[in-house]
Simulated assay, not measured.
Amino acid sequence: MKSFSVAALALIASPVHAGLRFGCSSLIVTRLDPVVEPGRAPSAHLHHIVGGNAFNVTMTGDVGSRGTCTTCEMAEDFSNYWTAVLYFKHPTNGSYHRVPVTNNAALASGTRGGMTIYYTPYDFSSDNLKKQPITAFKPGFRMTVGSPTTSTLAAAKGHIGLRYNCLQTLINRGAEMADFPDKPCPAGIFTVHHFPACWDGKNLDSPDHQSHMYNTITRDGFTNAPACPASHPVRMPQVTYETVWDTTKFNSLWPSGTPNPYVWSFEGSSGYGTHADYMFGWKGDSLQRAMDKDGCFYDGCGTIKKQTMNVANQCTVKDMVNENTDGWVTALPGQMA
């Protein structure tokens, strides 16, 4: 393990010190996980991936230097971002159908599904902390949040910033919840994954892919992050994913008063196991330049090259697993007994 020495609303932002918010179109849906299951093809369950085309079965070293295109609006970001995939389980016959991803509100024109990605120093209001420097991630850095083995509500609530919203419209989210909605949602199911922002200053990864990072936020949402502890003294950008799952076409198949019919691609009987993976891959010092820039948001901070989404949408990777992941299936990919 390589080491280094320690050296608005989510849609309408309030004033900020610095930060990034941008869309990434979907890159691929496949059973690979180079963070948790490097070298294994296929991985145990299906993932929805966005970002750079260096995505592969195994990923080490400087991902940003190997990428040649990205599905993200920020053209210097060859990182990869991924989550499990949402499925609808038919209440009558038990078959499964993958839920498509749709655009979040206010993304760049032409974004196809994908995710909204944030890199924020302290989240949306930072006056009390703006003197603290933000250190960009290093080549080879990776981390995860959440766990597919989470099985209780108490444990799910302990995963601060991993939440669901039952969308009334794409801009009316309703309350945050630690589990799937218990009734059909008019505009889909919204998921958010906040990552920790305090680094131990040494390890690019850890055995559980989480211990090298520390979360100082004690309540959900975009809130100011308290100071980092001595064990994890280096403040890094807080990375956040937002995904909109278009559940609308399944609403008529959910009988009134019956239990939630949605499952993640690792099965489970609840939404407690929601989780996400991050693999850093920005080119050179591009992310550090953005974090050093005061008073910007959404616009690349005046330092990062942007691309139109019709260019981003041309970025693809080869499917290294080649299995059916769409339409009605009798078992989840990788979960057949």
Rank of each mutant, 00 (worst) to 15 (best):
T191R: 03
P226G: 06
V192R: 07
D205H: 10
V234T: 14
H194L: 07
G174I: 03
K202I: 00
N203D: 09
T191A: 02
N203R: 10
T240G: 05
I160E: 01
P237D: 02
C228G: 12
A187T: 06
I171H: 08
G146V: 06
R163N: 04
N203G: 03
Q210T: 12
I217M: 09
T150C: 06
H232M: 06
N165C: 08
A230R: 13
G158I: 03
D205L: 14
T218I: 11
T149A: 10
T150D: 05
F190V: 03
M177R: 14
K249F: 02
A230I: 04
G188K: 05
T240V: 14
V145A: 06
G146S: 13
P229L: 02
G221S: 11
F250H: 00
S206A: 13
D208E: 08
E176W: 04
T152Q: 13
L167T: 03
A154M: 02
I160P: 07
A225S: 14
P237I: 01
W199S: 01
V239D: 00
T149P: 07
F190A: 05
T223H: 14
S147Q: 15
A225T: 13
V244I: 12
T144L: 02
N203A: 03
H159A: 07
D200F: 01
P148Y: 07
V239L: 06
P196Y: 01
I160V: 15
H212S: 09
D200N: 15
A197K: 09
A230C: 05
A187G: 09
L170C: 07
N165M: 06
F190C: 05
F195H: 05
P186G: 05
P226L: 04
L253P: 09
L167V: 05
A227C: 08
R163K: 10
R173T: 00
F250V: 00
